[in-house]
Design a protein around this nucleic acid. Structure first.
Lengths: 229, 229, 229, 229
DNA sequence: GATGAATGAGAATTCATTCAT
DNA sequence: CATGAATGAATTCTCATTCAT
């Protein structure tokens, strides 16, 4: 299983001297474009067929490559998945940020923080509700649990992206007068509630209780806001 | 083409006449013992290697069998996983039930319901906190998401066991004066909070916020109880 | 594949001294009854599921035995099939004989031979038309071609039974004035025509020509009779 | 669950632009050569060991490949068998066609049709007489009876090839003044007679009657021609 | 005579990965 | 950079057969 990684994948190549010569730059751009293309194929395969169906062969076929060719861009299948996850977290962050801005602009001053918090929490929830495969992606790399093909650095990168999606919520809580420790605790609770509900939703377990994930999540957020008011 | 597929696995053998003849009893016990042995091997393989590593071959090897031999005890690999999950849920239920009894005995009358609720919710949480692979087990069979090899009947059985572990909490909420819909909603919220925190905990994501899953869960439950008081 | 046959199957056991002692006789009868029971199960399995489905396990299950038990009665799976074929040929012979008798009784003297021939040829054809699996049986043991599990003696036995089914036709031809060599040739031609049509019929190949096996066979027989008249 | 099953086997690759570029041509040729090599191995295995013995493993071993490698050339084991059968029918057709041409050239005008018929019928018979395993091939794929792994389209293709081998005989009968229905019936009878005799021959059953398949078949054809004259 | 347990070989198929070209 | 070919190990599952009890 381990085997020494045979060949440095392009993304890990040192960028060379800072006074980047234009040729190398052009090449890097080309390479990035092709990596993107492969990731698009991988995402499509993963979303349509699930993990089992998203084999290297399938990804390669969709990207218009032969399987071997992918190894010029990624060192292994795992690395592709990891890149997919990174990009998923970027989309998450973008959706949460957009929600915040919108709320901030449209809302009168005193209630801004509360509205922001609500909007962002709901945007976070909505992202995974509407893109359940992105949730899968996050879990896959942990084998449901512990990291699989994640190097520690990669793991940290991914963590940072995730954290930056939740930071605005935490800041809103502080703006609403909560001491920082409480703000952190409540943010984490919101995160956990979202994750829990999304999973119950997706596994169908929530039907056991004839409940609706969305309204339960709103209940959680609104209850919190009510207590703060 | 048809073949009689689903071979009867030993556990489904008719129990025979009520005045159980000792020979059959002994045989059933032996068979059960060997099923147990196989399940132990499967659990160990699963816990150590994850779902992918817990192949029939691996399970057989650990149980000291050839792969084919397992088919005398389980009709398929999926049936083994299902048995594993079923047994896990039994242990969960037992732990929750025990917690309830203990609380009931040790607490004065009026606060019984609240104490029960707290004890049971915490027992539920503790079970998965202390046996993280049992959580995995539940999720694995859903491929992170949707069921894999679980037949609908099996799925229902497992759902029923899960539900019966959470029912006491719901009943306690009713005993505390909540209308049934609210009781159900809060029970589901507790369940979701537990699942979310456990996952954050296990994936290490909770460290992002320097939080502790256990105290956050207690915070959730205690907050609820405070609002009810 | 070959392995030295481990244990003489009961059917091969020497019958003992001619002055058969009654106990052994009783035992032999019992054994024959049980062999019959197993063959019934085998036939049912073969007819319902085809060769692939008629595994030893399936046969044993239908006979109410465990797989190992069959080895007390037959030395191998092949031997079961061979016994099945023998019994099939007996039924064939019986059907042809019955047709002859019937025709003989119901028909006036001069045309007896012709009527007999026709009736017997058609009975031969009808047997396999109505019991296509019996035709399969015959071919299986030849792997489409050459014998599989057939010992030479067994093969001779089976040949004798087959021949005795066709002998009446040959005799009728002689009675109709044909020299023996011609009678033999025509009998063989009838046999071949039957086999060919039956196979074309069963494999669906005859539909290629939008023809009907039964009427083509009658055409063959009637054409022959016309030429003899 | 779905996965894109039927992987395109090389033979289905689009032929590219009509002005075939030489590289692709060379590649196709190479691929065809290797498919041929595999088919040779398959044929050998089939002829020596029968269908049961001609497993993918065995074919691969004989072709000097690992089992997995075959899947680059054929989508499944069944596809290999089908290709084998298709190629057998092509050889049959070629042999029958050749016989026709020869007869046409060498024979005076009025008797052309009769000579053609005779030559073609005998060529059909001779093909299978001389290549008995090719007869097996046709029957094997029907499990002695009904099709095994043949898709309906494949089955139709094969039927068409078979039919085109027999069409000339039918046409000759029409040329000899027979109405079409009679021509079809007699062609089918010839086909059936050939198949029946070939099988009796190959299984050794014909020795029962001390007959010779070849002369019996000629007898059938010549008898027919005599009646038409 | 029969059972239950197990073996061991074999089935088709899939896959990530390697590597010469 | 990309291909096409191939490997080799893995997958689940089925089966005839053996044999101690």
């Amino acid at each position: 299983m381990e085997k020494s990684t045979r060949k440095a994948s392009r993304s890990e190549v040192a960028p060379g001297p800072p006074g980047d010569d234009p040729r190398r730059l052009r090449e890097n751009t080309l390479i990035e474009a092709r990596r993107s293309l492969i990731l698009d194929a991988a995402r499509a395969a993963f979303f349509e067929l699930g993990l089992e169906g998203a084999s290297l062969r399938e990804i390669a076929k969709r990207a218009g490559y032969t399987p071997g060719a992918l190894y010029s861009y990624f060192a292994s299948r795992e690395e592709i998945y990891a890149a997919l996850l990174g990009e998923s977290l970027d989309r998450l962050k973008h959706q949460v940020d957009t929600a915040a801005t919108t709320a901030a602009i449209e809302t009168a001053a005193p209630a801004i923080a509360a509205a922001n918090l609500r909007a962002q929490a709901l945007a976070f929830f909505a992202f995974y509700r509407d893109n359940p495969r992105d949730l899968d992606l996050g879990f896959y790399l942990f084998n449901g649990t512990r990291p699989r093909g994640l190097t520690p650095e990669l793991n940290q990168q991914l963590n940072a992206r995730l954290k930056s999606s939740l930071l605005p919520i935490q800041q809103a809580l502080i703006a609403l007068g909560q001491p920082e420790p409480t703000a952190i605790a409540e943010t984490t609770a919101i995160f956990a509630q979202a994750v829990g509900l999304l999973i119950l939703n997706q596994t169908g377990r929530i039907r056991l209780f004839r409940q609706d994930a969305q309204s339960l999540f709103e209940r959680h957020v609104d209850g919190l806001l009510a207590r703060l008011a």
